[in-house]
Design a protein around this nucleic acid. Structure first.
Lengths: 119, 119
DNA sequence: TGACAATGGGCAGATATCTTCCTATTCTTT
DNA sequence: AAAGAATAGGAAGATATCTGCCCATTGTCA
């Protein structure tokens, strides 16, 4: 894929944001890669997530774009629970805006977006 | 495999002890599973280590038998280095004795072992 | 319009440990 | 000698994150 057209979200990125929102609705303030992977697979968007590398790359991309922010889990907690550390993410305001914009960009041509740009 | 004949070491267990000794000679006081796996593979005992599960089961078995003891790496250190925690093992006195005995059992029939039982 | 360059996807593997399930073997007991 | 019990091995996968490589695509610039 080429240089990204400004303001555009890729399918997998939309998927991540949607899954994150879904998880938030269910009470999870933060999410981590593995969690999102499961969520996406369950929602049958499986085609978008064949490899884990793809997901983590997307997360990092979005973090660099300012759509997400991340914080590492307390290593002691992870150790206590006997599993690898998690890296938690949350959607920034910019991320939420982009989600709406992203949908618009997918659904209708830009010329019809006037008045729909909520938030 | 059946109930273990008392005092016998399985091939993979001998391999682990040997690799551990080798690593110690090279300056590593402690070893961990992954390290041993690499060492064994390099020493071309590869047939003994097809699956990782096998190795970790063997380590746990040996720990329960008192041949090894283990301590977990400081989670903060692992976090700092950005990798999963390691579980370190070291050979106990019983483990070293068993190694010698194990060799004898493999190499010569029990009736010839008299006088060779060093340590 | 054509070529370049950047980017993203997929595959594979590194790092590290552990569990579950099935199968095969053999040790021991009757 | 036959049968039963326990154990070890192998395959696979769960848990979690990240990197490198190659290839395809396409936006952009000349």
């Amino acid at each position: 894929m080429p240089r990204r057209k400004a303001g555009t979200l890729l399918p997998i990125e939309l998927s991540i944001l949607n899954a994150a929102i879904e998880l938030r609705v269910r009470g999870a303030r933060l999410f981590h890669g593995f969690m999102i992977a499961k969520e996406i697979k369950e929602r049958e968007d499986a085609k978008l997530l064949t490899s884990h590398g793809t997901l983590y790359k997307a997360l990092d991309r979005m973090r660099k774009l300012g759509l997400l922010e991340s914080e590492w889990e307390d290593p002691l907690l992870a150790a206590q629970e006997g599993r690898p550390r998690r890296r938690f993410y949350y959607i920034t305001a910019a991320g939420e805006a982009a989600l709406v914009q992203g949908y618009m960009a997918q659904a209708v041509p830009a010329t019809q977006q006037r008045g729909l740009a909520a938030q």
